[in-house]
Design a binder for these strands. Structure first.
Lengths: 341, 341
DNA sequence: ACTCAGAATGTAATCGATTACAGAAGTTCT
DNA sequence: AGAACTTCTGTAATCGATTACATTCTGAGT
C-alpha cells in the first residue's frame, strides 16, 4: 500500500528520457518536441506521478504560498475576504496559510518567521493594530518579501494597501440620514486605536460640520465593532437627556447589538430611532429590521489584495506595481432608517 | 539589504563546529555538550540565522502543515472551528492550510494533490458532502496520510471523526419544547443529502414518536441551514392550515431566518410560535428575541480534531489511536421559546 | 599506564526537483 | 558538402537541512 514515493527519476526511466527533460515538459511543454511530450505525459499517467512541491520549493526558493494574518479567526467579517484571497491564490497555484495575531502571540512565534523561514512568499495583513515592534520587523523584512495590508492599514508604515472608501461611505451614511430629515445624529465608533475608527469618526465629524449640525461630545459614543459594544452604546443612548434621532454605527455588528439592546428596553427601530451600520455583513439583510448600511464587497477586497501581492511576488522590484487600491462602497437602504417621528 | 540567505553552514563556520552539530543543537540540545551548545546559540544569535523549513521538510519528508477543507469559507459557522484547529497546530509548530471545496473544484485542482504532493501531512475535512470519487481517492490515500472528518462525516467511508451528540441534542430540544407544553412541533431540516440533516431528522422523528405526538408529513419542512432557507420555511409554516406551535430548526441560521420572515408578516416569537435553533452561533444570543438553541462548542471541536490528527501524524500506525470522539452539546434556554398561547 | 565504554563531533550521502552548460540532432543557406 | 543556426536533450551541480556511519575524545576501572 505505502508505495515508495515516485520521483522524476521514475518517470524519466519509464519515458526513456532524462529527468531534465521530464522537468521541462512539466513546467513548459513547449520547449520539448511533440514526441517527447507524449512519451512523458504517458509516463506520468501510467506511473501516477505527482510532483513533490517541497523539493520544487527548495530548488526554486519559493514557498508557493502566502500568509494571511488576521486579528481573530472567529470574526465572520473576514470570511469573505479569505474566500476572495484564496480564490485568486489557488488560481495561481499558490496556497493560503492562515494565522491569527492572537495565536502567533500565544505560541511565542514571531510573525516574521513565516517570511524568514521560507514558509511563505508574502503576507497579507488584515490587522491594523499590530504591535509597533512587529511592524518594524516586517518593514525591514529580511528577505524583502512583499507585505500588504487590506481593509485596515498601518499608520506610519508604508506597506501597499487595499482599502475601502471609508470617508465617502461615512459621508454617504450621514447624508442619507440628513435627507430623511434627521438633524440630531450620533456616531458609535470602533475601538479607539483603530485606523478605521479614526477615519470614519473624522469623516463623520467633517460631514456633520459641513451640514452645520450640532455635535455634542457625548454623541460620539465609543464602541469596539462588536455586538456587545453595540449593546453598551445603546444603554449610553438611552441614558441621554437629549437623544439623537439617528445613530450611525461604525460596523454592522455594532448596529445589530445596538438595536437588540434597544429592543430589550422596548424601544423600536426605526420608529423611535434610525440606526445604520457599516460593512453589509450577510446578516444585515436578515435582521429585524433589515439594516440600512454601507456595503463593502469583501470578496473583491480579498481578490484585489491577492492580485496585488501576487504581482509583487512574481515581479519583484517592478517599479510600476500598483501601490494601493481604493475600492468603492455603496449605500444600501433597508428598513432600519426612516424619517424622525 | 537583500542579504544572502543564511544557512547552517554560516552558523557552523561562526561557531567553529560542523553543520551536523549545529543541526543537532537546534533539534535536540541535550545531545551536545554544554560548551558547544553555548557556542552554537551565540552564533545563531549573532548571525540572525533562521532555519529554512523547506529544506527541512524535504529532508524529513514532512510538510509540517495540515490542510483543512471546508465547504464554504464564507460561512461563519466554521470560524471558531478553524480557530481551535489553528490554535493547537501552531502549538505543535505546524501550520494550517485552508481550501474550500468550491475553489478546489473551480481551480481544477484535485484535493488529494495536497496530500500527494507533500504540501500537507494530513487533512481535516469539514464537509460531509464530498463527491464520492473524491472520497474514494482520499480513502486510498496514496501516501496513507491521515484524514479525519469533523462536525460532519462521510457515510460509507471510515475516516476517524469528531462529532457532536446530534441525537442527544435533538432530543433535548424536543423535550424542552414538550416540557413547555407544546404538542404540535415541527422541524425545519438542513439540505436533504447532509448527514447532519439525516441524523437530526431521524432523532426528531424518534423522539416525537416516543412522546406519542402527531407528526403530519408537512411538519417536516425541508430547508438548507441558511438564513434564506429559514425564510422559505417560515412561509411554509404560515401557509399551513393546522400550524405547529413550536418549530425546531436544524441550525441557528435557519431559526434566525425563520423568525425574521415571521416578523415581516407581523408574527411574533415566542408569542405566536416558539422557535429553536442548533449550534449557538455568536449571534444567537444577540438576536431579537435571543435564541433558545443547542450549543456545540466549536473551539473544542476544532482543538479535538487537530489533536487527533496530530497524534496520527506523529505516531503513524499507532493501533491505540483514538478513532473518533463525540463531543457533548447543551441546551441553552433563551427567549425564543415559551409555553404555547 | 592501558583498555574500553560512552559521549561528542565530523564527514558525506541524501531528500527530489530545477537549470546552467554542453553536446547532439536537425534545418537552412551558400 | 559544409558552415551557421536553431531546436532538443542529457549531465551534473545545486537548493539547505538531516542523519547514518565513522571518528575522536573523555574518564572510569584495573
Amino acid at each position: 500500500m505505502a508505495l515508495k514515493t515516485l520521483t522524476l527519476q521514475d518517470v524519466a526511466r519509464v519515458a526513456g528520457v532524462s529527468t531534465a527533460t521530464v522537468s521541462r515538459t512539466l513546467s513548459d511543454p513547449n520547449v520539448v518536441s511533440e514526441s517527447t511530450r507524449r512519451k512523458v505525459s504517458d509516463a506520468v499517467k501510467s506511473t501516477g506521478y505527482r510532483i513533490n512541491r517541497t523539493a520544487r520549493n527548495l530548488r526554486t526558493q519559493r514557498a508557493h504560498s502566502v500568509l494571511v494574518l488576521l486579528p481573530d479567526l472567529a470574526n465572520p467579517f473576514f470570511s469573505n475576504i479569505l474566500e476572495g484571497i484564496s480564490s485568486h491564490l489557488s488560481s495561481q497555484g499558490y496556497s493560503m496559510l492562515i494565522a491569527s495575531t492572537k495565536q502567533v502571540h500565544d505560541s511565542g512565534e514571531r510573525l516574521i518567521d513565516y517570511l524568514d523561514d521560507a514558509r511563505a512568499d508574502g503576507m497579507i495583513v488584515l490587522d491594523g493594530g499590530l504591535a509597533p515592534d512587529v511592524v518594524e520587523m516586517l518593514a525591514n523584512a529580511p528577505q524583502s518579501k512583499p507585505v500588504l495590508t487590506a481593509c485596515e492599514w498601518i499608520d506610519g508604515a508604508s506597506f501597499p494597501s487595499v482599502r475601502c472608501e471609508n470617508r465617502h461611505g461615512t459621508r454617504a451614511a450621514v447624508n442619507h440620514l440628513y435627507d430623511l430629515g434627521h438633524r440630531k445624529i450620533a456616531h458609535v465608533t470602533g475601538p479607539a486605536d483603530n485606523v478605521l475608527t479614526q477615519t470614519r469618526k473624522a469623516a463623520f465629524a467633517d460631514e456633520i460640520a459641513e451640514l452645520r449640525l450640532d455635535l455634542p461630545p457625548d454623541w460620539i459614543i465609543p464602541g469596539d465593532f462588536s455586538l456587545i459594544g453595540g449593546c453598551d452604546a445603546a444603554r449610553a443612548w438611552i441614558g441621554m437627556k437629549d437623544r439623537p434621532t439617528a445613530v450611525f454605527c461604525a460596523s454592522d455588528q455594532l448596529a445589530l447589538g445596538f438595536i437588540a439592546e434597544l429592543s430589550r428596553h422596548g424601544i423600536s427601530v426605526p420608529r423611535h430611532v434610525s440606526v445604520m451600520g457599516f460593512d453589509d455583513i450577510d446578516l444585515a439583510e436578515q435582521f429585524i429590521p433589515p439594516l440600512t448600511t454601507i456595503r463593502q464587497d469583501r470578496l473583491i477586497i480579498g481578490e484585489t489584495a491577492a492580485k496585488m501581492l501576487m504581482s509583487r511576488i512574481l515581479n519583484p522590484g517592478d517599479p510600476q506595481a500598483e501601490n494601493s487600491a481604493v475600492l468603492p462602497v455603496s449605500l444600501v437602504i433597508r428598513d432600519s432608517t426612516a424619517p424622525p417621528q
